[in-house]
Simulated assay, not measured.
Amino acid sequence: MRRPLAATAAVGALAVVLSACGGGARPAANESSIGLAPPSSDATTSVAPVPPSSPATQPSATDQATAGPASNRCTAAVLAGEVRPADAAAGNRYAKLVVTNNGTTPCTLNGYSGLQLLDAAGQPVPTDLEREADPGPSRVVLPPKAQAAANLHWTVVATGDEPVERPCEPEAARAAAIPPDETQPMTLDWHFGPVCAGGRIVISAFYAA
């Protein structure tokens, strides 16, 4: 299922509609898991796990059990995000959505990011975001300069009625990602070509990186 997204100027306006909540997640096939729909902290679907890549060499994030006092939620205002390539095999592509806390105080992530592919003009590119349950949501506290990651998995093989003699879907140049339980997106570069199967991307919850 796809959800059209307006041009970049409209992303902020949509944030009012896309207010996130921490519970009551719906199945991956419905709109709560598509594109920039509200990311929540509960997984409701399970697909083939995407193995995480080796931990980054940045300072480690810690979970709430060792982090001390509760922290504020991580927002797009304090996070810097990027998509890092991982393994590729037999038409499958793997990557990690990595976020860094650029703020001066710890912040907390718990759950899934929203994600919408965009072309060079900021127009939406077909995106069908599906949550996986491994790893599922857990509270991750990011000290300043620490990182968290979410696994991404998609196919580059044309599916259904997608063309095989040209790109299966329009190619994205950027992506908009909303941290869990937030409404304002980060803008990320996308250098991975078209995403086939209608823009289907499987995403895990954030974990300490």
Rank of each mutant, 00 (worst) to 15 (best):
Val140Trp: 02
Thr159Ile: 12
Met186Gly: 02
Thr183Trp: 15
Ala86Tyr: 12
Leu79Phe: 02
Ala70Asn: 11
Glu182Tyr: 10
Asp119Gly: 06
Ala120Ile: 08
Pro180Thr: 12
Ala149Arg: 08
Pro106Phe: 02
Arg166Gly: 13
Gln184Ile: 13
Gln184Ala: 09
Leu97Val: 14
Glu169Trp: 09
Pro179Ile: 03
Asn110Gln: 09
Arg174Trp: 10
Arg166Ile: 15
Ala89His: 15
Thr75Lys: 07
Val156Ser: 08
Glu82Ser: 15
Val83His: 01
Thr127Ala: 03
Gln58Val: 14
Ala56Trp: 12
Thr105Phe: 13
Val140Ala: 06
Ala150Ser: 04
Glu162Met: 02
Val156Met: 03
Ala95Pro: 00
Met186Val: 09
Ala89Cys: 15
Pro49Gly: 05
Ala177Phe: 13
Ser138Lys: 14
Thr45Trp: 14
Cys74Pro: 03
Ser41Asn: 07
Thr57Asp: 11
Lys96Gln: 13
Gln116Ala: 04
Asp87Thr: 13
Met186His: 06
Gly160Ser: 03
Gly136Thr: 07
Glu182Val: 14
Leu188Ile: 10
Glu132Gly: 15
Pro135Leu: 05
Arg93Tyr: 04
Ala43His: 07
Ala149Pro: 00
Glu165Cys: 14
Lys145Tyr: 14
Ala133His: 10
Pro69Met: 07
Thr45Asp: 14
Cys107Phe: 00
Glu130Thr: 15
Ala89Pro: 10
Cys107Met: 02
Lys145Cys: 10
Ala70Met: 06
Arg131Leu: 14
Val141Ala: 07
Pro52Tyr: 05
Asn110Asp: 06
Val140Gln: 02
Leu188Glu: 03
Thr75Phe: 02
Ala56Cys: 10
Thr105Ser: 09
Ser71Ala: 08
Val157Thr: 10
Val125Gly: 07
Gly91Glu: 02
Ile178Asn: 01
Asn101Phe: 03
Cys107Val: 00
Asp181Cys: 12
Ala48Asp: 14
Asp128Glu: 11
Pro126Trp: 01
His153Pro: 01
Pro167Gln: 02
Ser53His: 11
Asn101Ile: 03
Ala177Cys: 08
Cys107Tyr: 00
Thr155Lys: 05
Thr108Tyr: 00
Met186Ile: 13
Ser60Cys: 12
Gly114Trp: 10
Pro55Asn: 04
Val47Phe: 11
Asp119Gln: 07
Cys168Gly: 03
Val50Pro: 01
Ala121Gly: 12
Arg166Ser: 13
Ala149Lys: 07
Asn92Ser: 15
Pro59Arg: 08
Gly103Thr: 06
Ser71Glu: 05
Pro124Gln: 11
Leu129Gln: 08
Ala48Leu: 14
Glu132Ser: 15
Ser138Pro: 12
